[in-house]
Amino acid sequence: MPFTDDHERRQPGTTDLAAAAESGGTLARARDRLHRFVDSDVFYSFRKSPITVAAFAVTLLCFVCAFGAPWIAPHDTNDVATLDLMNAELPPVWLEGGDWRYILGTDDQGRDVLSAIMFGMQVSLIVGFASVIFAMVLGVGLGLISGYVGGRLDHFIMRVADVQLSFPSVLVALLLFGFAKTVLPRGMQDDVAILVLIFAIGLSSWVQFARTVRGSTMVEKNKEYVQAARVIGRRPLPIMLQHILPNVMGPVLVIATINLALAIITEATLSFLGVGVPPTQPSLGTLIRFGNNFLFSGQWWMTIFPGTALVALALAVNLLGDWLRDALNPKLR
């Protein structure tokens, strides 16, 4: 052996874990990983915060209701055949004239409000997730390039972002909608409405991702591990994707969570304005808009319940985002 020193001391615990993982194969490794997650600081901070646990429960409930709607919803609101005008404008059960079949009442078409909320939430969540993912891919990609390459390209991308920021997101979405309406043939409009909505919301929120990622990329690219990769002879693209990206994803996840709530609200706003999803696939925003017309004639349940669901969902997701931000921030640990 060329060197004279012994191997530095190692923690016995981790060696055992590593050895166990080595011998036990994938199952043991998965168990090991789960164990490490349960033991981790992030999970600990989750457990210690009752508000976060509650927010998580609410979010989970919303997800189950939304995506389990075809099975657990009392009525299939998409099926027009089940609607009966006789049941229109029924109040919630606890009010006079309420019907146990329609717990939260019905709307002017005789549609069950609870089921409508569940189906509407599904649309809202799909639009929210898709637009955040779209914004994330766009923003992270541009941010990485901008931060890593620097120079004129960086200036160009960031000035575009500045211009983008000077338009309110709703205005961007409205413009896009107007554009889509004139370009696309009438028959297609309803089919692609959701895609246009996703595109519009995503386009209005990529800037935040791009700016954050650009900032962290500029910090990371000067770190020695990136320089080491350059000395080794790696090309820029692998360096960006393999070295820098994993290290800038923390804040991105936080922004994504917070933006999810924002996207859901934006979707609701657009639907409320009547430019969102088609009435055949009502989202929470659409429900609120319809119900709004009956607010002053006493049928408050048509708009208040979808509104409450929206507030609960957005608040819960936001709280989760806040917690994630604090949990991933080493300074606050």
């Binding site: 020695e224 591990y225 080794i232 002879g233």
Partner: peptide, 18 residues
């Protein structure tokens, strides 16, 4: 380039933590 390599100053920054 393969025949020259570099060792960096900061052992905490020179290895990708992920």
């Amino acid at each position: 380039r393969k025949r020259m390599q570099m060792i960096f100053q900061d052992p905490y920054a020179s290895l990708n933590p992920r």
